[in-house]
Amino acid sequence: MELVIIRHGQSEADLLGVHEGRADFPLTELGRKQAGKMAVYLAENLPPDLILASPMKRASATARVLQKTIGCEIQYYDELKEYNNGVLAGLSKKEAAITHPLPKGGRPAHIPIQDGESELEFRYRAEWMLHHVLYEYRDVRRIAIVSHGGLISNLIKAFLHQPNGKFAFSTGDTGIHLLEQQEDMRFVRFLNRQDHLL
């Protein structure tokens, strides 16, 4: 099984200087163009047999562009949503630094942000999603997963059996990662490819 993992295109929050997370901003015009280029690239090189996507606006719109280009089925999972950043969602970064500053030394991984989830809960959600995909869709040759930067980073950590440390896998707008599961072996074919945007 191949997992083609894709981040959504540029969203309006990227231009506003706000904490996005669970704030549900749509794609910008540039984001829609990025999604179109990504879809053409995948159609020509790695066409998926199935698309799984976050239902949030920026990810679902990106997934629909891919579906329209490829023509395969799309299914939405709440588990593919971005980190639940609770009270920070939609707040300007300047305002958040004043009203909800990080505790000294950072927030412990097991303690959720107000009205949100903890880092450990977020990681568990990604672990659950990965295991669900590998089991429930084990007969599907190639699956595209359209999601968000934080969730994608945790999916890759889970795929590689990496701990929940202070490191991340970066993904640019419509960046593509290709992971492959072959029986008991896992392969990273490439990470954060954005050739389609050149």
Rank of each mutant, 00 (worst) to 15 (best):
H131M: 11
V4Q: 11
H132L: 06
L52R: 02
G71L: 05
T69V: 04
H132T: 02
Y76I: 08
I51K: 05
L15W: 04
K93V: 10
L191S: 04
Q194N: 02
E44A: 14
R32N: 09
I143M: 07
M129N: 01
Q75R: 15
G106R: 03
H8R: 00
L46Q: 13
I6Q: 01
S118T: 03
T174K: 09
L42K: 14
H110W: 09
H177E: 07
A35W: 10
S170F: 12
N45A: 02
R189Q: 05
I111K: 10
G172H: 07
F187V: 15
F25R: 09
H8A: 00
K81E: 14
R138Y: 12
A59R: 01
Q75G: 07
E121M: 11
G116W: 10
F187Y: 15
A53M: 10
I176Y: 12
R123K: 08
A144E: 05
S153K: 04
W128I: 08
Q194E: 07
H19Q: 08
P55C: 04
N154I: 04
Y83N: 05
E127H: 09
E117S: 13
A53I: 09
P163F: 02
P48K: 06
G150P: 02
L42S: 14
I143N: 06
P26I: 02
R7L: 04
L179D: 03
L151I: 08
T171N: 15
V4I: 15
I156S: 11
L30V: 10
A158C: 05
T171A: 14
P108Y: 03
H196N: 12
H161A: 09
F159V: 01
H131P: 04
I176M: 12
V87G: 09
T171E: 14
L30S: 05
L155A: 13
H148F: 11
D184C: 12
F25M: 12
I6F: 06
L130E: 00
H110M: 06
P108I: 00
G150Q: 00
T69F: 03
M129W: 02
A168E: 13
E12D: 05
F169D: 00
I70P: 07
V146H: 12
R22G: 12
L15Y: 06
G17K: 00
F167T: 04
A158G: 02
P112G: 09
D139R: 10
I152Q: 11
D78W: 14
H148V: 03
R193V: 13
Y77W: 14
E117T: 12
Q67T: 07
S153F: 06
Y135H: 13
S54K: 01
G90I: 01
D173Y: 15
Q10A: 02
V87H: 11
L197I: 10
S54A: 08
A61V: 06
F122C: 07
Q182I: 15
L16N: 10
H19T: 08
L66S: 01
Y77A: 13
L46Y: 15
I98T: 06
Y83V: 06
I143G: 05
P47S: 05
G71Q: 01
E121Q: 14
V65I: 10
V87A: 11
Y135N: 14
L27F: 00
D184Q: 13
